[in-house]
Each structure stands twice: as structure tokens, then as C-alpha cells.
């Protein structure tokens, strides 16, 4: 099979800005994007820089953007992204500074992993033997332990695109691994810290991390679970948590979402509300603030559903 790789290159010692370079190679039908890149590096252009090692999607070295999507080059078959005679576009991973060609700076990536205190913090001294834990619990944690810290999720995270300080999906999935681990006793501290700025409430549920993760870790689902656990643990003095509560409450009150009320109730109080007045005014001028909010006909039935659910939840506990 013959494929053309259109590679985004940048050599800080030579280039002022990134440039595109095309390479055409002949590869086996089962070849991956990585196989082709290695062929280029070995036979055509030794100056092409990329990280790669295991070739079997376990080391996480070769995360990059392939046809605008984050992923592992060693897990991406050329037959699926280009086909015979086709072209595949290869770029460095997103949301991280480029060092050279397909190599990005991982220092900010690992700094964020470090920021979630990524180690088990059990209560008291260790037992004489292993901790007793159910296989089910271990299987559950294993879902996140499958993360190889490749950074594909970080590359394509839409929040990091606008806010580089967001902890991001990889670090938060790592944090979840400890909160969900029955052996860890620091849930309270962890959930409190994660509820702060740049933490769990900054995710916008865009699903990109779930989509691109090569190990099916589903970081976003872990983030949503952390939110639920944080609120249950009482960490509610934050806009995200207030937003979540207000969302439910306005529906209970009127049978449908009252966006204005949700926005107001999500803030910490008058001071913060006033700080958003510019945004409020612009929204109003663009017709984004509904002037009146009417309950839906039969809103009392919605309330009954809420009551019933709450009674049931109470019984279940």
C-alpha cells in the first residue's frame, strides 16, 4: 500500500514557524501510522523527530494528532485513515508546546499529574499482608489504571484550548483512581482540592477525551463521578456545584430550566454577580436573557416526580 504522510514540522534551530512536509512511502497493508513514520525517519529523512517505543500501545510515547484527531500512531492503521494512495495528516499533540516536529513538551502534562497527589494515601500503617478488597472494586479501579498517560485526551481537550490551567482529563482520571480505590483514605482532601478552581467543575462534557482515549479510560465519566462524590461529601461552595443544584431546583419549581435563575444562583453572591454584569448585559443585548419565565402547564406533576424520586432514594439509603 502506498500512502502519503503530510507532516507538520518545526525545528526551532531552523524554522521561524511550523511548515508542512510530505513523504510518500510503501508499507504493508496492516501498517500503522507509526510504522510509516519510522520508515520515513529510517529511510528518507533522518531529521524527523518523534517519540515512540513499544509499538503496541502500552508505553504511551507516540500520542499525536492524526487527521485532526488525537491518538497513538502505533494504534492507528493506515488502511483506516488513509487507504492505498491516500494521504494522512500528522501533527504534534495539541494543547502542549511543541519542542520539535512531533515532539511536545510534557513538563506541563506531568506537572498536572503531580498536582493531584497521585499516590495511595491509606489510613494508618499498612496491614501485615495485602489490603482486603473485592475483585469488583479492583476491576473498577483498573478501568482508570489502564491509563498510560499518553496525553491524547489532553491534546484534544476543548477546555485546555481556552484555559491552559485546567487540570485536564488525564490528571483528573488519575485522581479518580484514588478516590475510587477502597484502600485510599484521603477522599475528603482530594475531593475538596479537586472542587477548587481549574478542577472537576471546569470540564464542559464535550466527550473529546472519551472519544480519543486509546485505552478506553473514559476520563470525562471519571470527572462526572468525582463531581457527584464531591457534592455528596459536601463540597458545594463552588459555582459548579451551585450550578448543578440550581439546574435541578428550577426544573422542580417550574417544570423547565430557568436559565436566568440558574446563572444567578450559580454565583457565590452579590459581589460575584456584579462582576458578571458585563457578560449579563451583553447577553441581554443579544437576546440571550429570557425576560419572562413561565412554568409549564402541569408543573405540579414534575414536582410530584421529584418527591417520589426523593422518597425512593431515601428508602434505598
Amino acid at each position: 500500500m502506498k500512502v502519503t504522510l503530510r507532516v507538520k514540522r518545526y525545528d526551532p534551530e531552523r524554522d521561524r514557524s511550523p511548515r508542512w512536509q510530505e513523504y510518500t512511502v510503501e508499507v504493508e497493508d496492516y501498517a500503522t501510522v507509526l510504522d510509516a513514520l519510522i520508515k520515513v525517519r529510517e529511510e528518507i529523512d533522518e531529521s524527523l523527530a518523534l517519540r515512540c517505543s513499544c509499538r503496541s500501545h502500552i508505553c504511551g510515547s507516540c500520542a499525536m494528532r492524526i487527521n485532526q484527531k488525537g491518538g497513538l500512531a502505533c494504534k492507528t492503521k493506515l488502511a483506516e485513515v488513509a487507504g492505498d494512495g491516500g494521504t494522512v495528516v500528522v501533527e504534534p499533540a495539541g494543547n502542549l508546546p511543541v519542542v520539535k516536529d512531533l515532539v511536545v513538551d510534557l513538563v506541563p502534562f506531568f506537572d498536572k499529574v503531580r498536582a493531584v497527589d497521585p499516590y495511595l494515601q491509606p489510613a494508618g500503617p499498612p496491614p501485615e499482608r495485602e489490603y482486603i478488597a473485592s475483585n469488583e472494586d479492583m476491576e473498577n479501579v483498573k478501568g482508570a489504571m489502564a491509563c498510560i498517560l499518553c496525553g491524547a485526551c489532553v491534546s484534544d481537550c476543548t477546555v485546555l484550548e481556552v484555559d491552559p490551567d485546567f487540570l485536564g482529563p488525564a490528571a483528573l482520571a488519575k485522581a479518580w483512581r484514588f478516590v475510587a480505590d477502597p484502600r485510599d483514605a484521603a477522599d475528603e482532601e482530594r475531593l475538596g482540592a479537586l472542587s477548587e478552581r481549574n478542577g472537576i467543575w471546569d470540564c464542559t462534557h464535550c466527550f473529546m477525551c472519551v472519544e480519543v482515549c486509546p485505552k478506553d479510560v473514559k476520563p470525562m465519566e471519571r470527572i462526572l463521578d468525582l463531581r457527584r462524590r464531591a457534592m455528596e461529601a459536601g463540597f458545594k461552595n463552588n459555582n459548579g456545584s451551585r450550578h448543578s443544584d440550581a439546574f435541578v431546583e428550577t426544573i422542580r419549581e417550574s417544570g423547565r430550566l430557568d436559565e436566568t435563575k440558574v446563572a444567578i444562583r450559580s454565583t457565590s453572591g452579590l459581589g460575584e454577580l456584579l462582576s458578571w454584569s458585563g457578560v449579563g448585559l451583553r447577553s441581554f443585548l443579544h437576546g440571550k436573557v429570557p425576560l419572562s419565565h413561565k412554568p409549564i402547564p402541569g408543573a405540579e406533576h414534575v414536582r410530584k416526580i421529584f418527591d417520589k424520586l426523593e422518597t425512593k432514594a431515601g428508602e434505598a439509603q
Binding site: Y119, L120, P122, P126, P127, E130, Y131, A133, S134, N135, M138, V141, K142, M145, F178, D181, R183, D184
Partner: peptide, 9 residues
């Protein structure tokens, strides 16, 4: 295990 490895049970 005590370090946190999620061994099968």
C-alpha cells in the same frame, strides 16, 4: 499491593 497495585482478587 500496599503501594497501590490493583492486583486481581
Amino acid at each position: 499491593e500496599n503501594f497501590g497495585v490493583t492486583f486481581n482478587r
